[in-house]
C-alpha cells in the first residue's frame, strides 16, 4: 500500500493512429473523440481500469493497484 503502485497499461484508445505504436497493449483506433471516449468508458467499466487522457488524441487505460 505504501509503495508506489505498479500501473500496467492495459489498452490504448486513440484517434491519432500516427501517435501510437503497438506494444503489449492493444490499440483501439476511433474515428473521432466522442467515439474514442465511448470506447474508453466501455473498456473501463468492463475491466475496472482507469482512463488517462494524454491530450494528443490518445487515452490510455491502466490497471492501477492503489486506486482500486
Amino acid at each position: 500500500m505504501a509503495d508506489a503502485p505498479t500501473p500496467i497499461m492495459f489498452a490504448i484508445v486513440t484517434t491519432n493512429k500516427e501517435a501510437v505504436h503497438g506494444g503489449m497493449a492493444p490499440v483501439f483506433v476511433a474515428a473521432d473523440e466522442p467515439e474514442r471516449d465511448r470506447i474508453a468508458m466501455w473498456l473501463c467499466r468492463i475491466t475496472n481500469c482507469i482512463a488517462h487522457d494524454l491530450h494528443n488524441g490518445t487515452i490510455i487505460l491502466t490497471v492501477n493497484q492503489a486506486s482500486v
Binding site: 471516449d37 474508453a40 468508458m41 473501463c44 488517462h52 487522457d53 491530450h55 487515452i59 490510455i60
Partner: peptide, 20 residues
C-alpha cells in the same frame, strides 16, 4: 485544469480521463 486534472482548491488529486 488542463482539461482532465482534478483539483481540490489548489491541490491536484488525479487525472480523470473519462468525460463522463
Amino acid at each position: 485544469e488542463k482539461g482532465s486534472l482534478l483539483y481540490v482548491g489548489d491541490v491536484m488529486m488525479m487525472e480523470v480521463g473519462l468525460p463522463h
